[in-house]
């Protein structure tokens, strides 16, 4: 069933919407959640929450890209759940590693401290990603949106792991420069 047919089921308030969504995107969402939560059981719960959110959001929304829409919900829910678990010392998976790596994007303590609005940050990130070469962009998004490991990215894109690491390092450095230039970090 194509995406628009699935969305039409949501609009028709048909419960088949969820089963068809799960059939088509269950694995995808599960993978997104699993990389963040590192637990099959927690991921399963997170994905179920995603279907519920989708049910609430459609209608009135008609997602332009259903996979990205569902992936984004799953990612956000998983990160929230991870945050909660982390507070309870249960955090694991790719998130701590990614957070550690992203610290390299943040200038040192000598910089002016500023509170940054997330929307502003997203806008900067969109501009930043737009300007990146496609290869670097895809690697960066794989690592920090999908939370894929360096090894997985290397295999998927058929690159050496060192190439992926170097690309990520350079991209983070560029992001740091941009954040400094924008005066938001």
């Amino acid at each position: 069933m194509d995406d628009n047919q699935i969305i039409a089921l949501y609009w028709a308030r048909s419960e088949n919407a969820i089963s068809e969504t799960a059939k088509k995107y269950g694995n995808y969402c599960h993978r997104v959640a699993l990389r963040i939560l590192d637990s099959r059981e927690d991921s399963e719960e997170c994905v179920n929450d995603t279907w519920l959110k989708a049910w609430e959001a459609i209608p009135p929304t008609w997602p332009e890209h259903l996979s990205a829409f569902l992936g984004k919900i799953t990612r956000n829910l998983a990160l929230q759940r991870h945050e909660k678990y982390n507070a309870a010392k249960r955090g694991s998976g790719q998130v701590p590693l990614a957070l550690h790596e992203l610290e390299g994007c943040i200038p040192g303590k000598g910089d002016v401290e500023k509170i940054i609005d997330e929307m502003v940050l997203t806008e900067i990130l969109n501009r930043f990603l737009e300007g990146l070469p496609p290869e670097s962009r895809r690697i960066f998004v794989r690592r920090y949106w999908y939370l894929h490991s360096v090894k997985e990215i290397a295999e998927e894109y058929r690159l050496s792991e060192s190439k992926v690491k170097v690309t990520l390092f350079r991209t983070r450095s560029k992001l740091r420069q941009l954040l400094e230039k924008e005066g938001v970090a």
Partner: peptide
Amino acid sequence: MMESRQILSALGEIKEKFVLEAEAG
């Protein structure tokens, strides 16, 4: 000071086209 967690969180709202592009694999 901004935290890396903010970047990770803000990345969740980037344009869908970037997510789809990376998904293509």
